[in-house]
Every structure is written in C-alpha cells, then in structure tokens.
Nucleic acid binder design. Sequence first.
DNA 1: GTTATTTAATTCGCATTCCGTTAAAAATAC
DNA 2: GTATTTTTAACGGAATGCGAATTAAATAAC
Lengths: 392, 392
Amino acid sequence: MRAINRFNVLDTIRRAGSIARIEISDRTQLSTTTVSAITASLLDDGLILARTEGDLREAATRGRPRVMLELNPDAARVVGAKIAANRMVFVVSDFCGEVLSTLTLALRVDRQPIGVIADLIEDGVRRCVVDANLALDEIDSVCLGLPGVIEHRTGHVRTSPIFRETGVDFAKEMSGRLGVTTIVESDAHAITLAHHWFGKARDLDDMVLVSLEQTLGLGVLHGGQLFRGAGGLSHNLGDLVLGIGPQGTIRLASLAGESAILGDQPSGRFAEAIRLGRGMAHAKTLIDAEDNALIGAAIRAGEACGMALANIVTLFAPPRVILVGSSLALGQPFLDSLREAYSLAIPPSIKGVTELVFDQSTDETWAQGAAVVALRELYESPWGTTGPAPAL
Amino acid sequence: MRAINRFNVLDTIRRAGSIARIEISDRTQLSTTTVSAITASLLDDGLILARTEGDLREAATRGRPRVMLELNPDAARVVGAKIAANRMVFVVSDFCGEVLSTLTLALRVDRQPIGVIADLIEDGVRRCVVDANLALDEIDSVCLGLPGVIEHRTGHVRTSPIFRETGVDFAKEMSGRLGVTTIVESDAHAITLAHHWFGKARDLDDMVLVSLEQTLGLGVLHGGQLFRGAGGLSHNLGDLVLGIGPQGTIRLASLAGESAILGDQPSGRFAEAIRLGRGMAHAKTLIDAEDNALIGAAIRAGEACGMALANIVTLFAPPRVILVGSSLALGQPFLDSLREAYSLAIPPSIKGVTELVFDQSTDETWAQGAAVVALRELYESPWGTTGPAPAL
DNA sequence: GTTATTTAATTCGCATTCCGTTAAAAATAC
DNA sequence: GTATTTTTAACGGAATGCGAATTAAATAAC
C-alpha cells in the first residue's frame, strides 16, 4: 500500500520534472499529510531533491513559496546501448534519464562470434562509463537494445541479425562479464519507451512504433506498458508475410529490409558505404541524383511498409503510430509510396483513428531508450503506470 | 485496498469453484485472518455460499473439516447474446456463468433498419428472461455480442455486417429499451472470454482467438484482460490486406469471408441454405460429395487464413491460438490448407511458441461468452486478474 | 467412553497507514 | 506588522492486515 503510493508520488514527480507537494497531492488524490510523509521518506532515501526556487507561477504571489521537488539525478546511473550491425552507441544516463556521456563505435559486428561481440560491447560500456567520470560499480543497471527477436524476461536472444548463433542467453553472458545487472531488450522496444518518456508519445499511454532499420521492429505501448508476447517476446515485423510468390512466402523484410533496398552484393556499389553504416545516407544522395533502380526499390519498400502498417493499425488501432529508423532517410519516394499504400490499405471503418508520425531520431535516442528500460526496472512500478516525462 | 483483496478472494473462489478458506489464503498470500474477514463479508453480502460437505481431500483426515465456499449463483443474473446475420442466440446466466435458459431465433436480420433489429433483440431478451422464470428487473446486466468493429467503452458500433448504418450508439439504444444496463461487445471478444472462463484457455492468461464466421474477428487476451485498441475498439481481421491485385487491395475477407467461400449470388445454389444459417453445413456436404469448385474455394480460404494467422502469431506470439467459427465446419480441405499455409508462413524464430487449437463451439457458447463480459463488469475487477474457471 | 491429536476457522490485540482537522511554522507580499 | 499561502506537525479516528492464542470439529488412541 505504502509502496504503491510511494511509487505514484515518485512517478508524478518524474512526469512533472519539478513539482510542489501541494500539486502532487492534487494529482495523486493523496492528502497533503501523506504526501509530506512520503516525500520526506523519498528525500531521506536520496531519490528526490528539494529546490527552493523554481516556482513557475506568476512571480508575484503572496504566501509561502512552493518548494519544488525533483528527481535526484544522482540516485542511480544506468547504461543504455543500441547495438546495430555496423555500429554501437552507448549512453550513461542518470536517474532522470538525462545523458551523461555518449560513445559511438562505428564497427561492423554482425556475424562475428558471440565472444567477439560481447568483448566489444563490454569494452564500449566500460569506456562510456569512464567517459562519464564514473566507475562500473557506480552503475546500477545496463540495458542493451538489439535488433531481432528477444525474450526480455529471460534475457534470451532467439534470433538477431548480429548473431550467427540462435538462442543466446546474452543477458547472463553480459551480466557475468560486467558484474552489473544487464537487461537485454529489443531495440524497437527501447526506442518506443524513449518516445514515451521524452519524444513524440509523451502525451500517450497507447501507441505503436514501427522501426525501419536493418531489421523491421515493432513496439506496442498499451496502458503505459510495453505489450510483449509470451515470455516478453519482441516482435519482428520483417517476418510478416505479404503474399506467396513463385519461390515461397514473400516476407516484408525481403521487400523493405535494408539489404532489400540497398542490394546485398558484398562487392556492390554500396558495399563500402554499408560497411561504414552510411548506406541509407548514401542511398539518399543517389536518389536525389535520380538513380532509377534505387528509386524503384525505395518505392517498392514504401508500398510494402505501408501495407504492413495498415495491417498493424487494423489490429491495434492505436491513436498514433510513430515511424522511426534509418530507412526514413530515403526521403520522398519511400515516404510518399508508404503513405499512399497505407491510405489505400487502411480499412474505412478505422480511418481517422490513427495518426502517422515520422521521426528521425539519432542513434543516441535509441540508446537512451535502452537506458529508460533499465530505469523502469529500477523504479519497479508496482502497478505499472509509468507515463510521459516533461519537455526537456 | 480492501476492494482489491476482496476481489482477489472472490476471483479465487470463482476459479476454484469450491474452495476452503485455508486454500484461499494459500493462493492469495493473504493471512487466514484476512480471508476469514473478507469471506464473512462476502457471505454477508450473499455473493458466496458455504457448504459443509465437499471436502475433496482423502476422506480419512483428522482435524476440523474444511468448509467449502463457492459463488452464490443467485447473486446476479445476466443476459448474454450472440447476434449474427441469420440468427440470434440468447442465454440467461447466473452469477457463476451457468446457463439458466437459452433461446435461438433463426432469422435473417442483416440490412434491416436499426429499429427492426433492436425490436427483435429486445424481444429475444425478454423471452429468454421469461423462459428462465425471471422478470427483467431481476436481470443485472445485458451484453450483446455482435460482429464488426465495436467500441466497447462507448457502446458504439462503428461498422457491423448486420447494420446498414455506421456509427450506431447501440448500447444506449438497447439500454433505453430494456431498462437494464446493456453492454455491446464484439462477438469475437465474447467467445474469447468464454474460452478463458470455461473453454480451451482456462489455464492461460495470454492467448489469441481467431473467429472465422461471416466476419473474421480476433480476440487477444493479455494478462487475463482483453487487449483492446483505442477506445476499446475490437479488431476486424477481414480488413487485413494480403496483397495488391489488379483491382486494388486484396483483403482477407474477400478470400476467406463466408460470402467469398459460399459465393454471393442471391439466387445461387446456396441462397436458401445461407438464408437459413446452414450455409457452412450445406457446403460441407457438397465438399464431401467432391464439389471441386467449393473445395477450391475452401482451400484458397484456408491458405489465406493460415497466412493471416502466421502474421498474427508473429505479432502477438501467444502460447496458444484458438480457432473458432462456422468456417471450421468446412472440414479437411480448409483445415489442411490452413495448417499448411500457416506452417509455411510462420517464421522459424518463433516456431514452437504457439500451439494451434481448433474448436467448434455452439452458438450458445458465444452467447455465454457475452454473459461473461457482463459478469466481469459486475465483478468490477479493480486490478484485472480475472482468470480461468474450473472444469465443469 | 474419554482423552489426545490434528486441522480449520475465529477472536483478540497490535502495528501500520491513511485521512481529516487543527494548529503552528515558514516565507513572502502588502 | 498583517495577510496570505505553503509546508510541517500533532492528535484522533478508522480501516486494514498480521501473528498468536483460542475455539471448533473431527479422527485416532487408549
């Protein structure tokens, strides 16, 4: 009981960023007495801080000025990471989700043995922590966001484009190496929470995010919680079947995956750009130069995505869908055909329910999302009402 | 707080059917003291009953015998209904979900004006209540399960094959006519809860149900709760897009809907059978007689369903999928091609996660599911942990 | 037939937590 | 200084939940 109220107060403070006790009691429907008791205990535990100035009401109010409460950034530190096939981005973040240090490693890791990848990640985490002037034992939790199908609950990576192996118990592997609790999560889920806390879904507890990267991922937020399949399984949109062709099933990934758009030849015109993680940017310049083959690929990919998107909206009917990922960089041809296919495929009965939003986040945002996953586990919401955060 | 525990105790009793206090305290982790207090209040309110005999342990145990507690069937009565295009089925059920009376009306209502349909439903409800030797004012709640896209929260019917109009506020309409709180819910959601309480998902809090009737519907159970879209919107699987053909999008309904399988000619060979609601049964006899046109249609429908099913499993990754609905009556050709297309389309990464279960429930089960929807509202789960019920 | 044993359920007393009210303290505007 | 507003503190009352002891009801043992 106390735990619930305590969490609600803490969560209210987080959402508001900075808030007076009276306001907390207003929003949580708790008496000022109780709020005072709980905030006193939170202050005691060092989870929040009091600031004498900062009352945002009209400067000229009489009466005792409000004491603003806010999260204590130093209450915890976590590391979030986005692990992609050709780059890794790490952030160290404080208890508020604010980034303390960033590290980007541009290197191609896919198809390396697990041990090598784990080595590189371990290295990145350690370096990023040092960059933040911290030691690893000051880190409370680490969360790695990877592409693929991941069982969050068990930390099992069922399949991932960056692993040769399937069924890797990666959370255990990394926890052992780092000596810090390590969570493994789908990168799409991470960016979904990032948008919920800081981005374009701050105002919503229900939404869907589609990530168009090397892998096509999905994040569904329902009642402020990530919707996970059995065992906390993440979704892999690329596995969606769009039809049956002459040589078997046609999956979304084969039309709209990175390699489908850019071509998969190891010695092709993109090989070098892709290796450097600049495939999509390079593609964009070629499209601007009216490279018809590429424009065609982008249009086909957009159509496939639009159709898949319509199906997802049919199933989830969210008020908002956020599209993110490197493929957005393809620009007009891709986006226009996506939008067109979407509006063609969306059934009339739910037209107008869903709003499409495109967002080109930096990789840092993805890593920050992973940090949010870690923070949410620390917050340990008893009844899971973690909601949006303040405008930064 | 008390409300939570009270609900949990009540729910535990419902799931167990018959259970001693000590066992409740075991399962709920509440102290025997608290359980005693709560059960006393439940007994006082007439929601549960005590039975001296019925201790199921080995007959020869020493000690004070257990007093078994069970739901009081008379604590509430609800009406559940399945409204389909060519028939209506009503049940009156008690507080346990047990059926007290049934009424089936075989009549074609689709495309009638709202007023006519409402008249017929009102009539059916009233007659079924009388059949149960009850008066309407002894009914606590009514729930109507209809096909289509329905906003449970508002009682709005966005689209339904049985209504000419769109955007009908049907809950309000029927509440007014009956003078009883009336809930409107998707028929697929109703049968989903029926399976959760009484059927093939008693042991699961997470599962997906696909209903293959005139309309193709979906029910997703997540943490013991129905997963609803924005505004409690129900899903319409028939709107899923399977590809783009020469004349626009190809939707699942156009391949696997009832009219797609049976043909849509008003004067066709099925016209009469369909009108009588025996379309699928008739089709089955023709298939058994090796009617190739129909077998072909069934196979195409099965393939389309299997593919759509694989996509749904890709998105939700439930441990079990239950398939229900009249189309299952088509038999081998349909089921085999469905299974084949499914196993072809299911991505290897989640192979083995999901178990397919086919179930040919009677219409009464659907109506019973609607009754469960009504009962759940009465139970008013504070934290929504309503789970499975005992084998009957 | 009486007593001991075992198990189930209830009663009693205690601790916690919350709320409401009231009062006091703090801090500022007028 | 006085008025105003926020925050803290204190007391009483109410609800809840738990542990320990007690009662209840049956069987086993003698």
